[in-house]
Design a protein around this nucleic acid. Structure first.
Lengths: 91, 91
DNA sequence: CCTACATATCGAAACATTTGAATATTTAAA
DNA sequence: TTTAAATATTCAAATGTTTCGATATGTAGG
C-alpha cells in the first residue's frame, strides 16, 4: 500500500459520520444498506451519499446493487493492509 | 479511545507530509529532531511547524525540549490504541 | 547584554471539505 | 407506461486546511 492510499484511507476515517458508519457494521453483522445509513445519521440524503462515496472511493466499503437498493460490505482486506502499514511505523 | 480521538488521529494521518514524518522514524532509530524534519520536507519552517503540531496534538508524537532544539519520539502507545480501534471494526 | 539560532505564532491567500436544496437517474411496482 | 422509491449529481454557501512571509519568542554562546 503506497502513501497516497494511506493518505486517502486516513482522510476517509477523519470524520465522525464516517466513523459511525463503519462502527455500525459491528451491530449489523456484515452488511449495511444505504437506507439504514440514512436513518443512522442526522444528515440529509445527499450528505450521506457524499460520505458513503468517500468510504467507497477509499475502498473501505464495497457497494453491491440490489435492485433499487444499495448494500455495502466492509472491505476487510483493505482495512487489514492499512493496519499493517500503521504497524510498520512502530520501529 | 473515543471517536473524537479516532477522528483526530485519522486527520493527522491524512497528509503526505505527515506520513513522511512518521515514516522517518523507521530510518532514525527512535527519535527525530525538528531540524531534521525541516530538512526532510520541501516546505518552509512555519509549514513544517504546523504539521508537527498536528501530530503532537493528536499525541502521535511526544515533544521533548533540549535547549534550543526540539526532539520528538513516536508515541507507540497511542498508535497501538488507534490500531486496536480499527481492528475492532472488523466484526 | 548582544547576537545568532531554533522554533512558534500571526495573518492572509489558496485550496479542499462539508452540507443541503434542487434536480437527475435508475428501478420496482401498480 | 405511469408513478413512486432509492440513490446520485450539481451547485453554492459555509467552514476548515495548507502554505508562506513576516514577526515573535526562547535559548545558547560570545
Amino acid at each position: 500500500m503506497d502513501n497516497k492510499k494511506i493518505e486517502k484511507i486516513s482522510r476517509a476515517l477523519s470524520d465522525a459520520n464516517r466513523i459511525a458508519i463503519l462502527q455500525q457494521f459491528k451491530k449489523k453483522k456484515d452488511c449495511l444498506y444505504c437506507a439504514e445509513v440514512n436513518d443512522l445519521l442526522d444528515l440529509t440524503q445527499p450528505s450521506v451519499s457524499h460520505h458513503l462515496k468517500q468510504l467507497v472511493d477509499a475502498e473501505l466499503l464495497l457497494p453491491q446493487k440490489e435492485g433499487r437498493n444499495l448494500k455495502y460490505v466492509l472491505n476487510q482486506q483493505v482495512l487489514d493492509e492499512y493496519i499493517a502499514c500503521l504497524s510498520e511505523l512502530k520501529d
